[in-house]
Design a protein around this nucleic acid. Sequence first.
DNA 1: CTTAAGCGGAAGGTTGGCTTCCGGTTCTAT
DNA 2: ATAGAACCGGAAGCCAACCTTCCGCTTAAG
Lengths: 176, 176
Amino acid sequence: MRADARRNRDRILEAARDAVAERGADAPMELIARRAGVGVGTLYRRFPDRGTLLAALAEQYVHELMDALDRAVAAEPDAWAAVRAFVVYSVEKGRGAIAAALAGTSAPQARQTLVQRLDELVRQAQADGAMRSDVGTGDLMELLNVFACHPGVIPERFLPLVLDGLDRRQPRRRNK
Amino acid sequence: MRADARRNRDRILEAARDAVAERGADAPMELIARRAGVGVGTLYRRFPDRGTLLAALAEQYVHELMDALDRAVAAEPDAWAAVRAFVVYSVEKGRGAIAAALAGTSAPQARQTLVQRLDELVRQAQADGAMRSDVGTGDLMELLNVFACHPGVIPERFLPLVLDGLDRRQPRRRNK
DNA sequence: CTTAAGCGGAAGGTTGGCTTCCGGTTCTAT
DNA sequence: ATAGAACCGGAAGCCAACCTTCCGCTTAAG
């Protein structure tokens, strides 16, 4: 693969990430190309169809999250603290609707590994009594998607709130 | 206004609500018409353009929320309980992306009244020490939008969690 | 029974995005 | 340095989806 070709490939992926973040999974191919500083032709040569492009994006995204998880675990001795750190990072990193847009397409095996590892951590945090136990790993992933879909005010205002909601203490029935 | 005309108008509004909920603010006019069991012509005669239709929808929606608020206040003596009840109702009622889709279009004065009344309630709940005070009414409305955008698993799983997060006790810094 | 209000949906027009294709350009191996 | 394979850009053609208008037929209502 020629050097310029590789460079373009990377640029395209980056541009696609931004575009998908802002405009959803069906962001115009031409927009992606222009942002990458590349012609549509180039885009199509590298990724024959939108599906291929999205799949590449998904794989990259999952890998990034995986790295983030590793880092969080390394940095935080406490399981619950690691979960928090991972969620915070993911929300900041997961620009726009990427996660949601890719939820279906997402590379199955990589994603599964990610979920599996996160699950261990969550169970640990719950076993420690630090995290409420009526919310599972699947819920957590879902939560990340929601945040990813609402960039801007939502994450900054509500992330702490939700994290507090996830914290310790069993849920108590309040009404009735 | 002829009886059949009125009936059709109502049906259209209902169909539009569903369609917008599922497909967003730019749901095809023809889809709306067909669901209402009506020809496109009828739809256009009643609502000359999409904007008019959306405005009508928004107004109706805001009125519903206002009623809900009144009911919540009447039923619950405690301010914080009323806020909770209102939020729960809104999330259940606010099908799909209606709220978000209409956020911009929304009838200004009615919306303002709604926000104003909710604000009183929120302040009361906060003054009672029952609701955390670093989240305002605006945030609450935003929250409703987010929930409205993610029908299905999100509301049911996360609403209690978020409500717990809103509850009492000042936020405490946890990390660092 | 009359008639004005109302109705349906085909048709025409517009927009916006997808893909292909090919003449020109740039790497890179020798 | 240079040949030639790989690569590039973007104009052009195609298509699908949607909007909106229009008019002959239907029906409520007095």
